[in-house]
Design a protein around this nucleic acid. Structure first.
Length: 853
RNA sequence: GCCAUGGUGGCGGAAUGGUAUACGCGCGCGACUCAAAAUCGCGUUCCCGUAAGGGAUUGAGGGUUCAAGUCCCUCCCAUGGCACCA
């Protein structure tokens, strides 16, 4: 054991003192002068221990919050548990242990583990999303969405995982496999509840500009929302009353549209297919159904399709064009139908290359890179050169052109640029009542129904006719029944609860049935930042307690409280800093923003964005790979904490590299921090405490004092931008110098303790106490540096000849340019290089001299 | 394929266009010890040289500059994201 002290007893001692004094409790109601709401993404309470990833997220986040607190901010650091979800339910299926029991137990052990980190958590504000006190508000949110027309039911083909027996959100079924178990996802039609997040697409996109978030994350969200501007165009049908509407971002190419393609799922497919084509179409639809999402979206595969036999009319050319179906057209985007412009769209070009009958009609309507506006001929004429070659290639079906250019072969659009042509054709379409400007988003509405047990029941009941009705607020929490089997049957587990059905009939009447689905856990996590702020009197009100007890309260005593006290919300929202993994960039972080916006529109909160600043921690790997049980490379923090203590462990995590980069875990590296801490402890014992007793202390030398102030500056600057690694190395460097001193004065010692306080909170308290500090160090103010002291009285000037380093001089800080140049020329090792004469002299004050010869 | 970020000693990494390799790990030598561990001291980018010193070096190649890890161009590699969104 290398320690001159016992980390576990010191850490336990300070954790107890903090708790006894309640230093991390925040009175949310009290007027906060400078509130700082610091949040980390709350953990899922799994049966496994707290892992390195948790520490890597929570400990540096805590260090940053401590740093803020020492700058006079009133910090609020809550912690909670995202407790609903699949793992607990899967565990129940396997072992028969009720998810509520296992979750409560896991939460308890995790709290004990979390406390060992020594974070500034205010445990009084803890939330657990699986408790009725919490999910009563998740259900309240559903009712609000319903009341304001943002929740609706729709039968839709949904992602179904045959193994988990549940529906998955698009985000959970990426790549066509279940993100939990990896099973191939199939499509299944079900009636589901959706929330209309699309209504907020524009706002979700626009607000991003002003958020202090990583650019990368903002880009991902922009991409996810996927706004595109274009037009809807109506194509009339040959021999039919109705038309087909397509969406395109290139209405300017309308004269080049030589066919239409519908998604196989398009509702018109059956209607328009001719007798002759029925067999072929049916066969194609069948083959599409058999394809997995993976196969269908495989880009390397050749596009397939089949003609319907029907013909549409291009509103611009008035020509008849064939209507096909093909699975490269997505049913869920735009109108599920597109116009085929093989000359100017790569996908259409590919399709027409496969089906030669479509190729014959290829037209070139954009002349590449044509800059001049005086274009008079209808057929692109270029007698020679690349333009002509490209034109011929397009017509010959050898290539397509998607770049800029001039319109040709397009009647009244000829000679216009692409941008001008878009405006003109859109206006023309509107005049002709054949189309209109249109903005489309990729974002899809949020499917919130889950056919699972361990979630918040959707507070909806159905009358005997099957019409949905909201469960009144006074019946919340709409309790999750306990008399259920966990084995997946393909039906929602709640379907078999006798109590649930009886309860519904008792309250609403005979023949009424409850909604058997529960809510996506992302609903729970989209409002927890407000639940932390919920005043205890609201949480413990009649709405927070269980139904049995509620019956004792007279009906007139019910009042509808707000989710959160408006004063508290106004003061503390938005969250000042939110730290969590980048994997949530497009799910949780969009849903939470949507919910906040909706709540603002409903009048419950005053802000529209929940998270002002967002930071993603990096990933900690081991042996170059992501830690996982199956790879057997999981690092358990526990043995390291037992041996070295929390301070050393968290400092080592921060020392590995920049916080946002993560890093590869190495068992050996922690030794360096361990030695650093042990040496610090010895410094305090020997050079601070003992020398104070013998009154032998003397002030720091000017050079050391300058170094101390440089360190204060560097540590502060670095922590402010999450560069904990360089903050620590600056402290190490300072220690290297201080160890050479006989004694350290108390003021210097206390400054060092303060610099250490965010990084090693327990030790810093100990050092503070050792050096005679009063109260807690976390209540001290961050030390200030004196700018005058940052400069030492000598400076090092390097001498370069033709860019090569030849000498280095130590000169007085006051030395003039002339003195320095003379001194530089006099250097032995410089003389021999400048003999041939100096062409140019460059002097960079305080840095270097450069001679050109 | 598209977009973004990055590539620096044996390793993790540090460097407002101005001393590349800080700080730490590891390693080598020495002190203490009967010995080991721990601790302390010295050294440690590579090549030549006892040394003084010289040369090379930030993925590869060009360019701008008195001066480039840093700025510009081309290419290679790695990671992350998107991927038929019409």
């Amino acid at each position: 054991m290398s320690h001159p002290y016992d980390p576990s007893s010191i850490e336990a001692k300070w954790q107890k003192r903090w708790e006894d004094a309640g230093v991390y409790k925040t009175d949310l109601k009290k007027k906060a002068k400078d509130p700082y709401y610091s949040m980390v993404m709350f953990p899922y309470p799994s049966g496994d221990k707290l892992h390195v990833g948790h520490w890597y997220n929570f400990a540096p986040a805590d260090s940053f919050s401590r740093f803020q607190r020492m700058h006079g901010k009133q910090t609020f650091c809550p912690m909670g548990f995202d407790a609903f979800g699949l793992p607990a339910e899967n565990y129940a299926i396997k072992t028969g242990v009720h998810p509520d029991a296992s979750t409560r137990k896991n939460v308890e052990t995790m709290i004990t583990q979390l406390k060992r980190i020594g974070c500034m958590y205010d445990w009084e504000k803890m939330v657990n999303t699986s408790t009725p006190e919490y999910y009563r508000w998740t259900q309240w949110l559903f009712l609000q969405m319903h009341k304001h027309g943002l929740a609706y039911r729709k039968e839709a083909s949904v992602n179904w995982c045959p193994s988990c027996q549940t529906v998955l959100a698009n985000e959970q079924a990426q790549d066509g496999t279940c993100d939990r178990c990896g099973t191939t996802v199939v499509q299944k039609p079900l009636t589901q509840w959706f929330w209309n997040i699309k209504k907020y697409a524009e706002k979700l996109l626009k607000n991003l500009d002003d958020l202090d978030w990583p650019e990368k994350t903002k880009t991902m969200q922009r991409n996810w929302i996927g706004r595109s501007e274009g037009a809807e165009i109506e194509f009339g049908m040959q021999n039919a009353e109705f038309g087909i509407t397509v969406f395109t971002t290139r209405p300017d190419t309308l004269f080049g549209a030589t066919y239409l393609v519908l998604a196989p799922e398009h509702p018109f497919v059956e209607k328009i297919t001719t007798k002759e084509q029925q067999k072929a179409v049916a066969a194609y639809l069948d083959s599409v159904k058999k394809k997995t999402e993976m196969q269908r979206t495989d880009l390397t595969k050749e596009k397939t399709g089949v003609p319907t036999g029907a013909y549409a009319i291009n509103p611009a050319t008035l020509e008849q064009i064939p209507v096909w179906i093909a699975d490269y057209v997505l049913p869920t985007y735009g109108t599920g139908a597109v116009m085929g412009v093989p000359g100017h769209d790569e996908r259409d070009f590919d399709f027409a290359s496969t089906y030669k009958e479509l190729r014959g009609s290829i037209r070139c309507v954009i002349a590449p890179d044509r800059k001049s506006a005086d274009f008079s001929e209808h057929v692109y004429p270029g007698a020679e050169g690349t333009d002509q070659e490209i034109y011929e290639k397009i017509l010959g079906g050898e290539q397509c052109w998607t770049g800029p250019g001039m319109l040709v072969n397009s009647d009244f659009l000829d000679g216009l640029t692409v941008a001008d042509a878009m405006k003109k054709i859109t206006a023309w379409l509107e005049d002709e009542d054949a189309g209109r400007e249109k903005i489309t988003y990729r974002l899809r509405d949020w499917l919130v129904s889950r056919q699972r047990y361990w979630g918040a029941p959707i507070p909806i009941v159905y009358d005997p006719e099957g019409n949905p009705h909201p469960v009144l607020e006074k019946h919340l929490p709409w309790l999750l029944p306990t008399d259920v089997e966990f084995k997946p049957t393909g039906k929602s587990p709640l379907y078999n609860s006798k109590e649930f059905r009886e309860r519904t009939e008792k309250i609403f009447g005979k023949g009424w049935v409850p909604e058997f689905d529960t809510m996506d856990t992302f609903v729970c996590s989209s409002l927890y930042y407000l639940m932390y702020l919920q005043a205890p009197e609201i949480r413990n009100s009649e709405f927070g307690i269980r139904n049995e007890e509620k019956k004792k309260i007279p009906h007139s005593a019910f009042r509808i409280p707000n989710l959160v006290d408006p004063h508290i919300e106004k003061t503390w929202m938005p969250v000042s800093l939110y730290i969590g993994g980048p994997e949530h960039a497009c799910m949780h972080l969009i849903y939470a923003r949507f919910v906040m916006m909706a709540l603002q529109d409903f009048g419950f909160v005053s802000h529209d964005e929940p998270f002002k600043k967002l930071v993603h921690q990096g990933l900690v790997t081991h042996k170059g790979a992501k830690m996982s049980k199956s790879k057997g490379n999981v690092v358990s923090p526990d043995s390291f904490i037992d041996r070295h203590g929390s301070d050393v462990f968290r400092m080592y995590l921060m020392f590995m590299g920049p916080f946002t980069d993560g890093g590869d875990w190495n068992d050996m590296g922690i030794k360096g921090i361990d030695r650093f801490v042990a040496r610090l402890f010895r410094l305090f014992e020997e050079k601070v405490v003992q020398s104070a007793k013998s009154k032998k202390q003397k002030a720091l030398s000017p050079a050391l004092l300058s170094k101390l102030h440089l360190t204060i500056k560097k540590v502060g600057d670095d922590i402010a931008i999450f560069h904990f690694n360089t903050a620590i190395s600056a402290l190490m460097s300072l220690l290297n110098d201080l160890e050479k001193e006989e004694s350290i004065d108390v003021e210097t010692a206390q400054t060092i303790a303060k610099l250490l306080a965010p990084l090693a909170p327990h030790l810093a308290e100990e050092f503070w106490e050792m050096s005679g500090g009063k109260g807690f160090i976390i209540d001290q103010h961050w030390p200030a540096f004196d700018p005058k002291l940052l400069k030492s009285d000598t400076m090092t000037i390097v001498v370069q000849v033709n860019g090569k380093l030849r000498a280095s001089l130590e000169v007085d800080a006051e030395a003039s340019k002339e003195e320095i140049l003379a001194l530089a020329k006099a250097q032995e090792n410089v003389k021999k290089y400048i003999e041939s004469g100096i062409k140019k002299e460059i002097y960079v004050p305080g840095k270097l001299v450069s001679f050109v010869i």
